[in-house]
């Protein structure tokens, strides 16, 4: 196989063939790790194989978990190809697959140990409020209702200044 990586110009080292979906993926080492393939960090055989073009072929014959995320419609096969998930919900939709994929690219780590944003319903409410004010502002500007737009801008500023109640 002499394919180049699906994501860059480097030669592909990992090839995944999925007979169920009839798809094939070709990735270089870096992008394969990103997409969650188990690529040995440095193989002692690399030198021996380099002349032949070292390769790793995985044939997927089983599927665990859903094939698409109900939140955004992303298909798991697409994630394999791009290395990108579609929405926060993907992490739960593809939990079974990600369970083994994430630790491979994270040096075996299986959970977050750092800072977590202190999420409160207050902040969530304010984000929702901000979105609706911004939407109204767009409409007001489009309709050339400049006075209303100015009032809405004031409300946004109040929301920003006290970090809280703008009603």
């Amino acid at each position: 196989m002499n394919e180049t990586c699906d994501k860059c110009d480097r030669p592909a080292e990992v090839h995944e063939i999925d007979p169920i979906q009839g798809t094939a993926i070709h990735l270089c080492r870096e992008h394969a790790v990103q997409a969650g393939f188990d690529v040995p960090a440095s193989s002692p055989m690399a030198g021996v194989l380099s002349g032949l073009g070292s390769m790793q072929i995985q044939v997927t014959t089983e599927r665990r978990g859903p094939s698409a995320c109900p939140g955004c419609g992303l298909e798991f096969a697409r994630f394999r190809k791009t290395g990108l998930l579609g929405c926060p919900q993907c992490y739960d939709s593809f939990a079974a697959q990600l369970e083994s994929i994430i630790p491979r690219s994270q040096n075996g780590a299986t959970a977050h140990l750092g800072h977590v944003a202190h999420r409160t319903s207050d902040v969530a409410d304010r984000q929702a409020l901000r979105r609706s004010i911004l939407e109204e502002l767009e409409r007001a500007v489009a309709a050339e209702q400049y006075e209303r737009a100015a009032t809405l801008r004031d409300r946004l500023q109040t929301l920003a200044a006290d970090g809280g109640d703008a009603t």
Binding site: G36, L85, P88, A111, H112, L113, G114, R119, G163
Partner: peptide, 25 residues
């Protein structure tokens, strides 16, 4: 940012990112 925006965080994986190689911190 976290005072004014509701950020995507996961109880186990921490901050969620499009590419799983960036999650956690």
């Amino acid at each position: 940012l976290e005072q004014v925006a509701d950020l995507a965080v996961h109880p186990r994986w921490g901050y969620l990112t499009a590419c799983p190689t960036n999650i956690g911190t």
